[in-house]
Amino acid sequence: MTRDEQLEALVAAVLGAGKYRAVSPDFVRAIGARELAARPNLKAAIKATKNALHQAGGAFLDAPIDYGRALARLREAAGDPEAFRAACRAVMALHTSTRERLPILDQFYAVALAGVPAPGRVLDVACGLNPLARPWLPFPAETVYVAYDIYADQIAFLNDFFVLTGTPGRAEVRDVIGRPPDEPADLALILKTLPCLEAIDRRAPERLLDAVPAPRLLVSFPAQTLGGRRKGMAAHYETQFRRLLDARGWPAERFEFATELAFLVRKG
């Protein structure tokens, strides 16, 4: 097979696996092309591509999410603010990244975004199920919310969520490594995303931060492993991130929570 034929075979094999069926084909193709160039054969490249996809997002999904059932639960609770928040929490618990934030959810945005003027547009980069935290965000109802991730089924669910809640904006399937967001906004949420991007491409975090067209960035890092061990993770990530900020002269306000370390960054 030619290299192009190998790449298409790789994409078909990866997308044919149940765990990765909903992943952006462009993202699979970009990773697959890199792995084909680095591996001795197609089989090894397929395995390496699946491993990379696991690091990028698959590790945060303990099991496939029934998005139809999740949406039905949200619809049933709509109209009762407290019941709806409880339903949002229950759905966010299905995704490891947002589940880790649930114990600090009432403080996280209220504290980290307390000094931010009401944004007209917010970008949520590699969003996972974070848009379901919209009821906790200290923003007016008219703030436009634009979310990006690589899973088509998740994105369809989030668009349904936006319709259900009357949230202006949209969710979009996007490989933010290959195509960083280019839509101007007042604030970008980049929550526990940079380590995942770095696992795919060492330079991806700085390229993304440079490219995002927003003057303020809320960037966070996990304070513990998926298994709950700390292992000095927060200190490691902070050292790396401070080096990146210092090189650009970007000031940042630091916020430490039980499960997450966050920085509110001013670009430029």
Results as ranks from 00 to 15, higher is better:
R34S: 12
F257T: 03
R242P: 01
V219N: 01
L15H: 14
T239W: 07
L209C: 12
V125K: 04
H54W: 15
G227T: 11
V14K: 07
A37H: 11
R34W: 03
D186I: 02
G57H: 07
I104D: 15
E35F: 00
Y20N: 08
D26K: 10
L217S: 00
A90P: 08
P131T: 02
L226H: 14
Q154I: 00
F139W: 15
I200C: 02
A156G: 11
R3C: 06
R254M: 05
G169E: 11
E82Q: 15
A152W: 07
I177L: 06
V23P: 02
R179T: 15
E260L: 10
P103E: 09
F257E: 07
G57N: 07
F108E: 03
P184Y: 05
D4V: 13
A45K: 10
C88K: 03
G32A: 10
P184S: 03
Y145W: 14
V176R: 02
L132R: 10
P181K: 03
Q224V: 00
P215C: 04
G16K: 10
V11F: 01
G115E: 12
R101C: 11
C88A: 12
L10E: 05
E253I: 02
L15G: 11
L244D: 02
Y151R: 07
P140W: 04
G178D: 04
R266A: 15
L208N: 05
H54Y: 15
Q224A: 15
A185F: 04
R242I: 03
Y148L: 00
V91G: 14
R29N: 07
L189A: 05
L137F: 10
G166I: 10
M92L: 11
E82R: 14
V265G: 00
P215H: 01
A90C: 06
D201E: 14
G166D: 13
I150A: 12
Q240R: 14
D149R: 08
H54N: 14
H236Y: 11
P81V: 05
P195I: 10
P119Y: 04
V163I: 13
L209W: 08
P215V: 01
A33K: 11
V111Q: 14
D182Q: 09
A72F: 07
L191Q: 15
V28A: 05
R39M: 14
L71D: 07
T2R: 09
G120H: 14
D210H: 06
I65G: 14
I31V: 15
P135C: 06
T165L: 15
E82T: 12
V28I: 11
L132H: 13
V14L: 03
L53G: 10
D4M: 09
R3L: 13
G178L: 03
L123V: 06
L71H: 13
S220R: 09
V14Y: 07
Y148V: 00
A37Q: 13
L102S: 06
